[in-house]
Amino acid sequence: MKILFLMLSLMGFFQIPAQTPKGNTWTIEHNKVVRLKATSESETKNSFVIKDADLKAEGQLYINFHEEKPLKDWKRTFAVFDTKDNELINYSGSSFKIGNGKLRDLRNQGIKTLKIYTWALPTDPDLASRIRIKRMHLCTVTLEE
């Protein structure tokens, strides 16, 4: 019983630093115009609309995520989901770009709402298998025609 308690305590310890968003900031630009700057999750506040006219030009949706205390040997992942929680795009790195062509393709497939999340995992597979991740909502983007 003591071993089980110790293991659960350690798992909680590993989860806290990786998922604590305090001090983290992110900026989201579309076509080089800042659309959102945020420091906390909020599905209502962290949302914006991209109109069809904005997708016709060459450009991109760019997300720059800044960790106040970057974790050594951890890999950050960004992912785009639809409203049914289907993963559409997945990328690892400290920033994330989606071209307007890809956004148009998603809209033409009938996907009107994109939810963008991020999470971090240790690069050590053994350590990664022992922790539980929580994805952090960065923004919700509505594609309007």
Rank of each mutant, 00 (worst) to 15 (best):
L106A: 05
T39L: 01
I133N: 14
R135I: 02
L10W: 01
T25M: 07
Y62A: 14
N31H: 06
I89W: 04
H66I: 06
K97Q: 14
A79M: 10
K115N: 08
D85T: 01
K22F: 14
Q19I: 09
K134A: 12
E145M: 09
T39I: 07
S40E: 13
G99V: 07
F65Y: 12
D52K: 12
R130Q: 15
P17Y: 06
K84I: 07
C139T: 04
V80M: 05
A38F: 11
K115S: 09
T123N: 05
K134L: 12
I3P: 02
E145H: 12
K97C: 09
F81E: 00
K134S: 13
L55V: 09
T20C: 13
T77P: 03
M1N: 08
E43K: 04
S47K: 09
L10I: 05
K75E: 14
A128M: 03
V34H: 07
P125S: 13
Q19V: 15
G23Q: 02
M136P: 00
L106E: 05
L121G: 02
E68C: 07
W119D: 09
A53E: 11
E68K: 14
H137G: 00
K69E: 10
K51E: 15
F78T: 03
F81P: 01
Y62Q: 15
I131K: 08
Q19H: 13
D124L: 06
K2F: 13
G99D: 12
S95D: 15
I89M: 12
G59F: 01
L55Y: 10
G101H: 09
C139K: 04
T123M: 07
V34T: 14
F5P: 15
F5V: 15
A18Q: 08
R130F: 12
H30L: 05
I131V: 13
N108G: 13
L88D: 06
F65L: 14
F78P: 00
Y117G: 06
N90Q: 14
D82H: 05
I50H: 06
G59I: 00
V49M: 09
F96W: 06
R35C: 12
G110P: 01
S95V: 10
I63W: 04
S47P: 02
K84T: 10
R135F: 02
M11R: 15
R130D: 10
N31V: 10
N86S: 02
K56H: 08
L114I: 02
K69Q: 03
L143C: 03
D52A: 14
Q60H: 12
V49E: 11
E67S: 09
R104S: 15
V80L: 14
L8F: 05
M136F: 11
T83F: 07
T113G: 07
S9V: 12
L103A: 07
T83H: 13
I116H: 00
G110E: 02
V34Y: 02
W26C: 03
V141M: 03
T77F: 01
G59L: 04
